[in-house]
Amino acid sequence: MISRRNFLKNTAKAVAGISVPLAALEILSPARVQALKADSAVRWAFLVDTYKCVGCGFCVKACKLENEIPYDANVTRTWVERYVLTKDGKLFADSPKGARDGFISTKIDLGMGNFHDVKKEEIKKAFFVPKLCNQCDNPPCVQVCPVGATYQAPDGVVLVDRTWCIGCGYCIMACPYGVRFFHPKYHTAEKCNFCYHRITKGLKTACVQACPFGARQIGNIKDPNDPVAKTITTERVGILKSEYGTKPHVFYIGLDEEVR
């Protein structure tokens, strides 16, 4: 026979027990989630013209100094790759120090202190390709973050919260483009953020400003009068690794199939 005392006791226990897990959940109404998804008027996009790039590396130098990436550490938010294809079908590609000091020799850096000099007569085609974070619309690096330290801002830029990052490195593994690394000083995930402190003030990114040849451009793809948006939407541009479905927002003019 259940007593009144026991009934009240058990009820109180059950209510307390149920309310603890409920407190851990945030109940969202679908209407509120939809309202939060309000379209931003800005979506940053980047345009690289590989025909114009000469491999001077001023972009990499400017980026490292602007964003306080230790200058001599072999990590960088942006870099330039050199591709040399020979007439007998061989491909040589290098990016010594991320091209921080540019390409000042015909010798290709094969790594481990080995170099290969391709003779001018052997070259079929050769060119430079600048790389940086693609600020994907479906960023795999953000999906894998277990703590919500990396995220996509409403204007499309993927940022890292240094105070929140636990340094697990999942995002570094997840990025198909290899743009992420550990910051040697903060020991947190680090990546190109389109110089967020500059673009939000109306400035160009450090790399865009430093490029003497206009090979790098940044613009707002949602603004129909933006020259970069016009080029991207009306001309033939390529993206890297489209097969991953990441919807990158760095577009390339003159992209070659050898470029990965």
């Binding site: 114009k52 390409f103 015909t106 001018k120 050769a126 060119f127 430079f128």
Partner: peptide
């Protein structure tokens, strides 16, 4: 440094 790379500036 002279780099004679066709299809590059």
């Amino acid at each position: 440094t002279k780099l004679l790379y066709p299809s590059s500036g």
